[in-house]
């Protein structure tokens, strides 16, 4: 049986890199006594896969991994046991049964991520003023961004990957492409926006908080974004 765990990562644990978070959960699952399944072979490993990696220093309320169980366990018990084994900064939020098969893996179906950009209270005015320019920024025919690739710097148009960029409740709200074909980071959008405004953002002028990861259940032309956890059912 395949289950999908949604978890949050906040506070000091923001500084654990992706590989360390994977190691962290492998150990947590063992401490929790969750009946996780192992691969065959001389060195069996846990059958577990994570959705997209999260940038260092970013807090998140929408992290996911899938794991294979060797026997059924209720959502409630899974959550209970897992949270008992987690510590500072990590919390399991939901545990759902998901369809079998690689093409349903959290990583394979991830299409977009939602973010909130937060600013220090004292800079409020500056940010509210800038937010007035968002529409015009998005109305540009293209939003070119320099991306680092294996073959050096490349310019890419990130406009098609910005599904939403708006001010909401004193924060900025973003929905950005996060699939293997198209991946837009919040910082790219912020840097492009700063350039458009003729200014510059230092990385610590704002904090990025990841809110959710979505699958696209619609089509490429008219996407329907559904949180990954909604694709599973309670056990």
């Amino acid at each position: 049986m395949k289950v999908r765990i949604k978890f949050s990562k906040r506070g000091p644990s923001r500084f654990l890199g992706h590989l360390d978070v994977m190691r962290y959960f492998q150990k947590a699952v063992r401490r929790a006594g969750i009946p996780v399944a192992f691969s065959a072979g001389f060195r069996p490993h846990m059958i577990m896969s994570f959705a997209a990696p999260l940038g260092l220093g970013i807090a998140s309320d929408g992290e996911y991994f899938d794991m294979e169980l060797s026997r059924e366990m209720s959502s409630r018990e899974l959550l209970c046991r897992l949270n008992e084994a987690l510590n500072e900064g990590f919390q399991a939020l939901s545990a759902k049964k998901t369809p079998e098969g690689k093409k349903h893996n959290a990583m394979a179906i991830t299409a977009a991520s939602g973010y909130r950009i937060r600013f220090p209270e004292e800079d409020r005015q500056r940010w509210e003023q800038m937010a007035g320019q968002m529409e015009a920024f998005l109305a540009q025919p293209a939003i070119p961004v320099e991306k680092k690739t294996k073959n050096g710097l490349k310019t890419a148009d990130v406009k098609p990957g910005i599904y939403r960029f708006q001010a909401a409740q004193g924060e900025w709200d973003m929905l950005l492409a996060a699939s293997s074909a198209s991946y837009v980071k919040p910082r790219m959008v912020m840097d492009a926006f700063a350039e458009y405004l003729g200014t510059h953002f230092a990385p610590h002028d704002y904090a990025v908080h990841k809110m959710e990861v979505y699958a696209n259940t619609g089509t490429e032309q008219s996407p329907v974004f559904v949180p990954l956890e909604d694709l599973g059912e309670d056990i």
Partner: peptide
């Protein structure tokens, strides 16, 4: 501060709070 942690190698060396 975050800005220091983000400019050094393996910042998790310095945060404590382990299990």
């Amino acid at each position: 501060k975050d800005e220091i942690l983000l400019q050094i190698e393996k910042p998790a060396r310095y945060i404590g709070g382990e299990v």
